[in-house]
Design a binder for these strands. Sequence first.
DNA 1: CCGTATCCATTCCGATACTG
DNA 2: CAGTATCGGAATGGATACGG
Lengths: 150, 150
Amino acid sequence: MARSKGLSDSTCPVARALDVVGDRWSMLIIRDAFDGVRRFGAFQESLLIARNILTDRLKQLVESGVLDCVPASDGSAYWEYVLTPRGKALFPVIVTLRQWGEGNLFERGEKHSVLIDRTNGKPVPALALKNADGKALAMEETFVKKVEGR
Amino acid sequence: MARSKGLSDSTCPVARALDVVGDRWSMLIIRDAFDGVRRFGAFQESLLIARNILTDRLKQLVESGVLDCVPASDGSAYWEYVLTPRGKALFPVIVTLRQWGEGNLFERGEKHSVLIDRTNGKPVPALALKNADGKALAMEETFVKKVEGR
DNA sequence: CCGTATCCATTCCGATACTG
DNA sequence: CAGTATCGGAATGGATACGG
C-alpha cells in the first residue's frame, strides 16, 4: 500500500513532494478539500472515484499529514477530512496548476471556473516569480544548486 | 496509450492540468528539463525510469505541447526534448512544489537542493499569493467560482 | 547511443457485493 | 451513509532483447 517509489529520501524537494501528492487522485482530493469538501461521500460524488481507491488515498493523505480526520460535525458516527496546516500549505501549488491550466488548456472563449478574492470579488492575480528585490525573475535566471552528496 | 481520465473537458483548470502532468513521471521529466536535461539517455539515467515508459511519457508530453522534439545539437541522428513556451509556463508549478517539499518534507538540518537566482546568487524567495493590490492573500479569503454548466 | 518491442510482475482502478 | 472486501481488467513498470 505504500506508494513510495523511493523518492521520499531524495534530496530534491520536488521529488519528495511528488512522492506524496504526485499520483492521479491526491491532488484532486486536495483541490476539493480547499473547495470545502469534507465528507467521504462528497469526495466520491465529486470525483467519481472508486470507493476503495478513495479509502486508500484518504488514508495515505492522513498518514502523510496533509489531511486530518475529525469527528463529523453532524453528530454522525463518521469522519470528516480536513486540511492540516501542511495541507493548506499546498494552496500555491493548486493555484499555479490552475493558472497553467487556464492559460494553456482552454480555447479562447471556453468557460472555466475562476479563483476569486472574496475581499474584493476580483479574480486572484497570477502567481509570478520574483527575486529578492521583488523584480520579475525568468526561469532562465535561475538554476538548481544540488547538495553535495549524490 | 491515451491517459485521459476524461478530465480533459472539465471546466476546472486544475483537473485539466492534472490530466496532462498529473501522473508520477511527467512532472519529474519536466523538472529535469528545467534543469537542462535534453537527451533520452540523460532522462533515463537521471530518473531510473524504464525506457519504454520514458518513450511513452516523452511522446505524451510532446503531443500535449509541453515538450518539443528538435534534432540533436551534436549532429547525431536523434532528438533532444526541450520545453515549449507552454512547458516553460509550468515553472511556477515546479517552484511551488519545491517550496512545499522544502518546508514540509525535510527534517531540520536535512540537506536538499536549492533554487538559486543567478543574478545575485541568493535563493529564490517563496511564491506567495497576493491580491490585486499586492497584499498577502490567505487561502480562506478566496473561493472558486464555478461556471454555470455542470 | 537512441529508441522500439516484448514478456512478465506489480500496481491501479472500477464495479459490485457486503457489513455496520 | 461510510467504509471494507474482492474480483477482473487495464495501466504501469522493470528487464531484457533487438534494430537504426
